[in-house]
Design a protein around this nucleic acid. Structure first.
Lengths: 186, 186
DNA sequence: AGAAGCATGTAATGAGTTACATGATTTG
DNA sequence: CAAATCATGTAACTCATTACATGCTTCT
């Protein structure tokens, strides 16, 4: 059901077509919160329309349909937000890979962790650039859609980066204390 | 396919039965990286055994089967680790809720963010207690399985907490500057 | 003796992916 | 006029959840 509420949330921010929603998904939710492909989005929008939680408010060129959230939709979304489950499902392939890195030889694991740290730094730079490019009036209001997502990245990405760097340092320490012997090959 | 590699990863750490693996899943991967229910684990183990990536190394009471990773399994896992996709899928219902919190009235949003901060703090305390209770030899080696998961929490949880607290402060600031008027009700 | 936990599974349904399909409009 | 992008969908398949099912062992 999460996809359903993700779409209601995007539409609560502002109306949009399936195509547009797919792009807004990518720009905001996709990296941290939820992933969905375009065809799944179209199908869910049709179901939402059947259930009268959204409605078509305009039709444009190329069969474009603009959806808006209805009052019933807003009610349903708010109710969902008010009743969080004890434990929400998490699936993150990126972190799964990180957690399984221990399987690799220390040197290779170290290299991967180093790359992850760099990757997190790049995304942080990118995010900072995005925020800097925003007009000032979009930066201010704390409860506009993208805002929470963007600021979350500002706290999350340094944490991932520093964790990876810390793990690299840990591997180095462990190797130093462990092999007094140098590389057997010349 | 991620579940498949998650199981191979757990078995690369040490052999175990389906039941045991389900519990190890919960203790390590479940919170941050991957979620799976016991019946899905059993099914995937059977498929892995068919494909000779794991094998039954012991059978115990109550039909208990202990699985171990095979050489082919280890090769397959390492290959997967070496070839990360450009973008891994992320699904996190908790964060989705956070991102949609802007739909609520500022006062209610504030309250929820406050709760998230407290929740993160509680989990951090719990994690610190767990680590403190470990025998020293389990804390040291940087590449044992649970280690990456545990240290990740040590970086991740404060980030979530501080972000939530920062958002609370932002809402307070915004409200102060916005309504010079006090609550209409007495 | 009963409860809690151990241990594994099946069947039906729902969520999500992959591949395929179609055609209009805008931009270079 | 060709390429890129807009725009929506269907069908087959795999992954994941829910509900059901069974029986053993240990602890109190």
């Amino acid at each position: 059901m999460s996809l359903r509420y993700a779409l209601l949330g995007l539409l609560a921010d502002e109306p949009g077509s399936g195509y547009e929603l797919a792009r807004r998904f990518e720009d905001t939710l996709d990296r941290y919160a939820w992933h969905a492909k375009h065809n799944q989005i179209y199908q869910e929008l049709n179901r939402l329309a059947e259930d009268r939680l959204v409605e078509v408010v305009a039709e444009g060129a190329r069969g474009r349909k603009t959806y808006a959230i209805t009052e019933a939709g807003r009610t349903s979304l708010v109710e969902w937000l008010r009743n969080p489950p004890d434990s929400g499902v998490v699936r993150n392939e990126f972190l799964l890979r990180l957690f399984l890195t221990f399987v690799l030889e220390p040197a290779e694991a170290r290299q991967q962790l180093q790359q992850y740290a760099e990757h997190a730094q790049k995304r942080l730079d990118h995010l900072n650039a995005l925020i800097a490019a925003l007009p000032p009036e979009d930066v201010a209001p704390p409860l506009k859609f993208g805002h929470l997502a963007a600021t979350f990245g500002l706290w999350q990405l340094p944490a991932v980066r520093d964790w990876a760097l810390h793990s690299v340092a840990e591997i180095d320490q462990w190797q130093q204390s462990h092999d007094g012997a140098s590389d057997p090959r010349p």
